[in-house]
């Protein structure tokens, strides 16, 4: 049962009402449960931020590490003991700002990790500062006149850096997300699943999505299925307010830390 994976004595969690992180955690636990992972052979690793609190609620060995460094710690765990399942929770700031270098190198090494990035466009835990994924023009406490920097496309970054599996969904697409986590885990090498999700408290409040429902509507309406777009767009550029969802890559480049077939 999925609930067995939770530390009941740590609940309630710290996430705000309407936060997307709980949904994503649920999908991930559903996926590992479907795969029949043994809790005692599973390690969750995270850095710092809202997303990174997730492992603390899960009843396995876990490393809640320093800001941005989750992938480097996870690399150590997996390379020292490839028989462990290692899954990383991270966020947009943790992964792509302070942890950007570790991110591209973990993709390049193609270490057999599954990484779920909760991309809520903002630093939630510190109160709503702009991140490398805050869209142009959007408001945060450090971009009070609208973000002026181009945001990263995390999924494209992972593809370019060499990950074997890359997908992007949103917290609205729970079925697809769960399937993507399963597919990512089953693909040897580095699997990266970006999940665009709502942060009504810090991001929504300043950007007209104060109600979680409005935020989810925005995510659903901005998301364009990658397959469909690839078939129909004829090379046309995606409108800047939209983003692609779906599977970006699934391949079998040489990977590290893959357990020996016993």
């Amino acid at each position: 049962m999925r609930d067995d994976w939770l530390r009941a004595d740590r609940l309630p969690h710290i996430y705000c009402a309407g936060c997307g992180n709980g949904t994503i955690m649920n999908c991930v636990l559903e996926a590992v449960d479907q795969l029949g992972w043994n809790m005692d052979e599973t390690v969750f690793v995270s850095g710092i931020g809202c997303s990174s609190r997730a492992p603390g609620y899960i009843r396995t060995d876990s490393l809640h590490t320093t800001h941005g460094r989750a992938l480097a710690f996870a690399t150590g765990v997996k390379m020292a003991n490839p028989s462990l399942h290692v899954l990383v929770f991270t966020g947009d700031g943790d992964l792509s700002a302070i942890g950007g270098n570790h991110f591209i190198h973990a993709c390049r090494r193609n270490i057999d990790l599954t990484v779920v990035c909760m991309n809520n466009y903002i630093y939630g835990m510190t109160g709503g500062q702009g991140s490398p994924t805050t869209p142009i023009g959007k408001t945060s406490t450090t971009t009070p006149y609208g973000a002026a920097e181009m945001p990263f496309d995390l999924a494209e970054l992972a593809v370019a850096a060499g990950a074997n599996y890359v997908a992007r969904w949103t917290s609205y697409h729970v079925t697809e997300l769960t399937k993507a986590v399963v597919a990512g885990i089953q693909t040897p090498g580095f699997s990266f699943i970006e999940v665009r999700c709502q942060c009504p408290t810090s991001y929504g409040r300043r950007n007209k999505y104060r109600q979680p429902g409005d935020f989810i509507t925005y995510l659903r309406e901005s998301a364009v299925l990658k397959d469909r777009w690839d078939r129909s767009s004829a090379g046309e550029e995606l409108p800047s307010e939209k983003f692609l969802i779906g599977e970006f890559v699934r391949r079998s480049r040489p990977a590290m830390g893959v357990p020996d077939e016993a």
Partner: peptide
């Protein structure tokens, strides 16, 4: 590793596997 920050992180992760 890609830098010394990551090196230190990796040995801590490894140490927890015993």
């Amino acid at each position: 590793m890609e830098d010394e920050i990551a090196s230190m992180a990796a040995i801590i992760g490894a140490a927890w596997t015993g």
